[in-house]
């Protein structure tokens, strides 16, 4: 129930941010719409830790900033690799140390989001990763991102 409430608040915030028209009619329609969305999400049984990972929120900003830095770096790296043609693709397995599926998904997505590395398969807590060349691969194998996501997950 609390989660539904939070979803409602988040959606309403989204609506107010997008709307830009704060007449009574439109805003009340917005409230109704958000309620409808929450109802549908409850009906579809989407409101759980996966559908609404609230426990990420406290440390999210920090993580995102760090992720952006990583993305920038690896973009530069990938660009260089493409221009110079210095590629030696490799495929390997890394272990993830997170407890929940959401966190594992976040980790896998973060790996994919940084160009140069892609998760190709997921099996419980083992990821198969494809990397453009070994320097990208080493970045993943150093497990820095893994620890970062573990930290993001908190002690949930």
């Amino acid at each position: 129930m609390i989660k539904s409430f939070w979803l409602f608040v988040i959606l309403l915030g989204l609506w107010l941010l997008m709307s830009g028209h704060y007449s009574v009619l439109i805003t009340s329609l917005g409230v109704v719409s958000c309620a409808f969305c929450v109802y549908l999400a409850r009906r579809a049984k989407l409101i759980d830790n996966e559908g609404l990972p609230l426990f990420f929120f406290p440390r999210l900003i920090n993580y995102i900033l760090w992720l952006f830095k990583e993305i920038f770096n690896s973009n530069v790296g990938t660009g260089k690799a493409i221009i110079t043609g210095n590629i030696s693709p490799e495929i390997f397995i890394v272990k993830s140390s997170q407890n929940t599926d959401v966190a594992r998904v976040t980790y896998a997505n973060s790996i994919t989001l940084t160009p140069g590395t892609v998760t190709t398969k997921i099996n419980k807590n083992e990821f198969e990763v494809h990397a453009l060349n070994s320097s990208f691969g080493d970045d993943v194998r150093r497990n820095l991102m893994d620890r970062k996501v573990k930290w993001l997950e908190g002690n949930n």
């Binding site: 993305i71 973009n75 989001l113 940084t114 160009p115 140069g116 494809h130």
Partner: peptide, 28 residues
Amino acid sequence: SIIIGACGLIKLPDVFSRIHAAGMIDTG
């Protein structure tokens, strides 16, 4: 980054490495 990514999309040898180039377009 989008032009290099698009070049990579053409130049790189297989799907898996092209995904990295596509990732460049999508992120950078």
